[in-house]
Amino acid sequence: MTTVEQRPKNRPRSTDKALLTAGIAAGPVYLGTALAQALTRPGFDLARNDVSLLAIGPHGWIQVANFVVTGLLVLACAKGLRSTLIAIFGAGLIAAGVFTADPAGAAISWHGALHIVAAGIGFLAFTAACLVQKSGYSRATGIVFLAAFGGVASGSANPVVVIGFWVAVALAFGWLGVTAVRATRTINH
């Protein structure tokens, strides 16, 4: 068994397996919770409404909790991956839950502005985490995610833009899960 001192700098320890597993779980938790709400919330339209709008209203606490729990899972994974950029993404998710979005068409409030800023910083950090990788899959994920984020950040409610962002979010969490799985395979038992 190797000691920490003998372990290559970027190779995870066996104690990191649980942290990496959190990253594998993050996507299914986030997407499953968001889609369950989107499909059962009266008036919510997957083709026109951003997931952040689920944090509004009497059942908004569910999406707030989804943002926070998913952010904590991503933070755990970031620790296992030793990735500051992924940690910023996780922190952005948590802050996006704490500072809820404003209803569509409403004036931007202070908490709505902080929601946008927190999500934006987190999404840009995620994109950077993808782009610094050597694989084409990672870089493609970062580019697609950045383009989709740009589309929804423009305020567009065009169904192609909104659905494109939902797909990009699924792709992003897929990338995180694959990255975590690959890292668990390098753990020396």
Rank of each mutant, 00 (worst) to 15 (best):
T2E: 15
T2S: 14
N10I: 13
P12R: 02
S14M: 13
T15I: 14
T21V: 15
G23E: 00
G23N: 07
I24Y: 05
A25Q: 04
G27E: 06
G32T: 00
G32N: 02
A34H: 01
A34D: 03
L35N: 04
A36V: 12
A36Q: 08
A38W: 06
L39A: 10
G43Y: 08
D45Y: 11
L46Q: 04
A47H: 11
N49A: 12
D50W: 14
S52C: 09
A55W: 03
A55H: 05
P58A: 12
P58M: 12
P58Q: 11
H59T: 14
G60K: 04
G60S: 01
N66W: 01
N66L: 06
F67T: 02
F67L: 07
L72D: 02
V74W: 01
L75E: 05
L75M: 13
A76I: 10
C77S: 12
A78L: 07
K79V: 15
K79Y: 13
G80S: 10
L81I: 12
L81K: 09
T84V: 15
I86M: 07
A87E: 01
A87F: 02
I88H: 03
G90R: 03
A91S: 08
L93N: 00
A96L: 04
A96N: 04
A96H: 06
G97E: 02
G97L: 00
G97K: 03
V98A: 07
F99T: 01
P103M: 09
P103R: 07
P103H: 06
A107H: 01
I108T: 12
W110S: 12
H111K: 11
G112H: 02
I116H: 05
I116E: 01
A118H: 00
A118I: 05
A125I: 01
F126Y: 04
F126V: 00
A128S: 11
L131I: 05
V132H: 10
Q133R: 15
S135G: 02
G136F: 14
I143M: 14
I143P: 08
I143L: 15
F145M: 02
L146Q: 08
A147T: 12
V152I: 15
A153N: 13
V161R: 08
V162G: 07
G164R: 08
G164K: 08
F165D: 00
V167Y: 09
V169T: 11
V169F: 11
V169K: 04
A170W: 11
A170H: 10
L171P: 04
F173C: 04
F173Q: 00
G174A: 12
G174P: 02
G177R: 06
T184G: 05
T184W: 06
T186I: 11
H189C: 10
